[in-house]
Each structure stands twice: as structure tokens, then as C-alpha cells.
Amino acid sequence: METKSAAITRKKEKRSELYRKLGPLIALIVLILIVTVLNVNFIRPNNLLNLLRQVSVNALIAFGMTFVIITGGIDLSVGSTLALSSALTAGIIALGVPSVIAIAAGLLIGAFLGMINGLLITKGNVAPFIGTLATMTIYRGLTLVYTEGNPITGFGGGFAFQFFGRGYLFGIPFPVIITTAAFMILFIVLHKMTFGRKTFAIGGNEQAAYIAGIKSDRVKTMVYAISGMMSALAGLILTSRLNSAQPTAGTAYELDAIAAVVIGGTSLAGGKGRIVGTLIGALIIGTLNNGLNLLGVSSFYQQVVRGVVIIIAVLLDRKK
């Protein structure tokens, strides 16, 4: 039984919670409006589809990063994981393996690299920042060793692989469709399944979660594996689009991914977050990049603007 005043407080809380959730979305809409007013070309379908395709790589990485950050961790190795799994996949395709199998192998490689991060952090008890900082350089180094420092090109790849990054389905770029599907799956995993609950619980208070019987080591290892797999997925799209695997691909991508997660309202302290927010965060960053380019703003200034937006996002989030 609820008293009347409790019901009122509850309504108030719900409303402030709603504003909190809507904050990033409102920011995105305002941003779109501003850019459109300044240059109407922004809103043309071609540009918008282009924008979504540009966003998809960062969004995919950021989805995985959201899980990691909700556990209270961080994954700095995503860019290197992207590069290493891309290079290995290109190598596999060059061997003549059918592209669908190669794509699956690429994703598994990504998950495996992520799992190594997870084991390092859980079994080795290494702080996530340090552990993934180390694997960031290890994976990058291995990529350079494997590719001998040169891009892997001309490996061909069947229609499926070409379609992966370049194809269109019903007029929509295929990477956008992949990203949408990944978003829906991960949304369900995070918000509708017990795995997601456990992820939040670990970030909220790992010791309490452990004593409640949650296998925190296993959940965390899987979370890093998800992050690795999403990086690999992003890498496959990139590789397909460029038709080459670059040894330096994905450098500094972890920063954009973390930025998207933070702008989306996920707390770096762990325990709090939303994958919808991350999607919006990635869209905000993408809109900024695309819009500032359209407006002819120098790329030097673009960086300044991006940093300012991150600060504003965090300040707004804290205020509530």
C-alpha cells in the first residue's frame, strides 16, 4: 500500500529519471537542428545514411565498452583487438576460406582476445586499466608482426565479405543494419536478461554480488569477451569497406568509444548505465564530426569541440 505523498514522490522521481534518460536524446536533436539550419545538406538522406555508416564502427565498439564500464572496468585494447582480428581474418580469407566462415572466425578471434583481457583481470587480479593497456600494445605489436607492417590487400573475399561493409539492403547500408541488430541483441542482454543484471550488480558492489552467489569472475570475463567480439565486428566492417586490413587500423578508437559511453550517461564508477545512451552518444559524436566537416570547420577545431561536448555531457549528467 502506498501513501499519497509516496506516490507523488515516486512520480517526481520518475519524471526526473525521465529527463535524465532523455537528456542525451534532446542534446542530439538540438545538435541536428543547429547543423541543419547552418547547412541544409546535412539533412539530405544521402548524408544521413553516410553518417549512420560512419557511426556504426564506433557504435559497435562502444556497445561492448558499455558492458565493460558498467562492471566498473575499462577496455583500452579495443582498437588493437580490432586491428589484430581484422588482419587475421584477412589472412584467413587469403587462404581461400569461404568468407562467411572467415567472418565467424574473425568474431571468435575478437572474443578470444577479449577473454584474455578478462582472465588477466579476474584470475590475474590486474587492474583493468593496466591489463588492457598492456594487451593494447601486445595486440598492436602482434598485428605489426603478422602483417610485417604492411596493409593486407587484394585478399579478395567472396560476395559475403564484400557485402559486409559495402552492401546495401533496401537502400540502407549493411553496416547500419548490423549495428541495429547488435544494438537490439545487446539491449536485451543488458536490460532483459539475468546476465545484464549480474553485470550491473558487479559494478555496483562486486563483493556483495559475489556473496550473493554471482559468479563475478565468469561474468566479467564474458563481458570483456563481448567487448572483444564487438571490436572484431567493427574491424570486419572497416576491412570490408577499405578492402584492406591496415596494421594501424583502430588506433585511438578506444577514446571515441569511451566518449560515446560517457556522453550516453554511463558512470565510469560502474553499476549505472544504458546502452541506448551509448547509441545516442555515438550518434552525437558522429553528428559533430559530419556536421563540422560539412560546415568546413578545421579538424583542429573539431577536436576542441568534441572535448567540450564530453565535458558538457558529464556536467549535465551530474547535475541531476
Binding site: T194, R197, K198, A208, I214, G271
Partner: peptide, 24 residues
Amino acid sequence: KSEGLILDFSVRDNISMTAFEEFS
């Protein structure tokens, strides 16, 4: 505080933490 509860989580999330099988 440090081992029994997740203080900034809701009453619901804290209670259901040990018993996911009951409703999943």
C-alpha cells in the same frame, strides 16, 4: 554496506539478486 547490499541500487534489484531463477 560493503558486502550485503548495493546501496545505490533499488530495493527490488537488491532482493532479486540471489534468486534470478525464481522469475527468469
